[in-house]
C-alpha cells in the first residue's frame, strides 16, 4: 500500500500551461500518474499534449473527478490557487511553489484547518509525493525511486529526499511512499502526519526521516515516535555545521538562540529509539541493514 495517494488518484495540475507545470506535469503523466486535467484561468478549452485545460478547479473537478491537485504557480498566486483547490473540491493538494510569504502560508494553513478540515496540503516548497510505480505528484525524478516497499520516506528537504530515495534504490530497497513535506515555516503536512500514516500502512515496515535545523518539528516527531511508533525509524538531520542566526536557504532552516540545532534534534530522536545517522549515505546503509533483518 501507499499513503495519501495510489494508482487510482486522479490529479489536476494548476499551472499546467506554465514552463514548470508543463515539464513536471507531463513527466508525472509519463510516470503513470493519472494526470486528468490542467487549470489555467483564460486557457480553458485548450490542451497540453492531450491533457484538457480548464478555467477553474471547479470545472476541472466536475469534468474529471480529480481529487488531487498539483499546484505549480508563482508565489504571488500560490495562496489563491491553494484556496481555489480546496473550494473546488480537491482533498489532496501538493504545492511545490518556493518563496511564498510566511504570512500567506500562516493564513492558508489556518483557513484550511478551519474551513476545509478534510483537505490535506502537502508543502508549500516541497518536492511532492511519490508512491513508486503508482503515482508521482511533483518534481521528484521517478527513475530514482523503486517500487515494492518496504520503506516509507518523509523529508523536510527536497534534494535530500532524492538523495534518500537514491541511497535506498541503489541497494535494491524499495519504497512504499516518499513524502517531501517541505522546508517552509508553516508546512501543511508535518512529520507526525506522515509517521502516523506509515505506522498504519501494513506494507511500510521501516521509515526514513530526513530533518534539518530550525523549528521543533523533529523534536515533536521524536516524542510521538517514542509513544506510538512500532516500526524502526532511521533519521538524518542536515545542518550540524550550520552557524546560528543565519537562514540556510529554507525560510524555516534557522537556528534561533539555542533552539533548532541539529544536535538537539538528533538527541531527541536518539532518545526515542531512532537510529540517528550522520549523513545520507550512512542513513541509507543503516536502513539497508534494518531491511535485511526484517
Amino acid at each position: 500500500m501507499s499513503i495519501f495517494v495510489d494508482e487510482n488518484t486522479k490529479v489536476i495540475v494548476q499551472g499546467l500551461t506554465g514552463g514548470q507545470g508543463r515539464f513536471h506535469g507531463l513527466r508525472n503523466r509519463d510516470y503513470g500518474t493519472k494526470i486528468v486535467g490542467g487549470v489555467t484561468p483564460g486557457k480553458g478549452g485548450t490542451d497540453v499534449e492531450g491533457i484538457p485545460v480548464f478555467n477553474s478547479v471547479k470545472e476541472a473537478v466536475a469534468a474529471t473527478g480529480a481529487t488531487a491537485s498539483f499546484v505549480s504557480v508563482p508565489p504571488k498566486f500560490a495562496a489563491a490557487a491553494i484556496l481555489e483547490a480546496a473550494e473546488g473540491g480537491i482533498t489532496f493538494i501538493v504545492c511545490i511553489t518556493e518563496g511564498i510569504p510566511a504570512q500567506d502560508e500562516a493564513i492558508i494553513y489556518n483557513r484550511l484547518v478551519e474551513d476545509f478540515p478534510g483537505v490535506r496540503l502537502l508543502g508549500p516548497n516541497c518536492p511532492g509525493i511519490i508512491s513508486p510505480g503508482k503515482c508521482n505528484i511533483g518534481i521528484t525524478s521517478g527513475d530514482i525511486a523503486l517500487a515494492g516497499g518496504p520503506v516509507g520516506i518523509v523529508s523536510r528537504s527536497g534534494t535530500l529526499t532524492y538523495q534518500a530515495l537514491y541511497e535506498l534504490s541503489q541497494q535494491g530497497i524499495g519504497q512504499t511512499t516518499c513524502v517531501g513535506i517541505g522546508g517552509d515555516p508553516v508546512p501543511g503536512t508535518n512529520f507526525i502526519d506522515c509517521l502516523e500514516a506509515f505506522e498504519a500502512d501494513p506494507d511500510t515496515r521501516a521509515v526514513m526521516m530526513i530533518g534539518e535545523i530550525g523549528g521543533s518539528e523533529e523534536e515533536r516527531a521524536a516524542a510521538w515516535i517514542k509513544l506510538h511508533m512500532t516500526k524502526p525509524v532511521v533519521s538524518y538531520i542536515a545542518g550540524v555545521t550550520a552557524p546560528p542566526g543565519r537562514k540556510m536557504g529554507h525560510a524555516g532552516a534557522i537556528i534561533s538562540g539555542s533552539k533548532g540545532t541539529a544536535q538537539a534534534k538528533m538527541d531527541a530522536l536518539a532518545d526515542a529509539g531512532v537510529h540517528v545517522c550522520l549523513n545520507p549515505t550512512e542513513a541509507g546503509q543503516k536502513m539497508g541493514d534494518i531491511v535485511k533483518a526484517l
Binding site: 518556493e98 518534481i139 523529508s155 523536510r156 528537504s157 527536497g158 534534494t159 535530500l160 529526499t161 538523495q163 522546508g183 530526513i210 534539518e212 535545523i213 538524518y236 542536515a238 545542518g239 550540524v240 555545521t241 550550520a242 543565519r246 540556510m248 536557504g249 529554507h250 532552516a253 550522520l278 549523513n279 545520507p280
Partner: peptide, 29 residues
C-alpha cells in the same frame, strides 16, 4: 548545491571528512 537541505548536508559531509566549507550556496530549484 541545489536545495537548502543538500547544501547543508554538503557542508556537513565536508566537515565529516576533515575539511571546512568556505560557504553555503544553494542555487535553488
Amino acid at each position: 548545491a541545489n536545495g537548502a537541505g543538500l547544501a547543508m548536508s554538503t557542508l556537513d559531509v565536508v566537515n565529516q571528512v576533515g575539511g571546512t566549507a568556505a560557504n553555503f550556496l544553494d542555487i535553488g530549484g
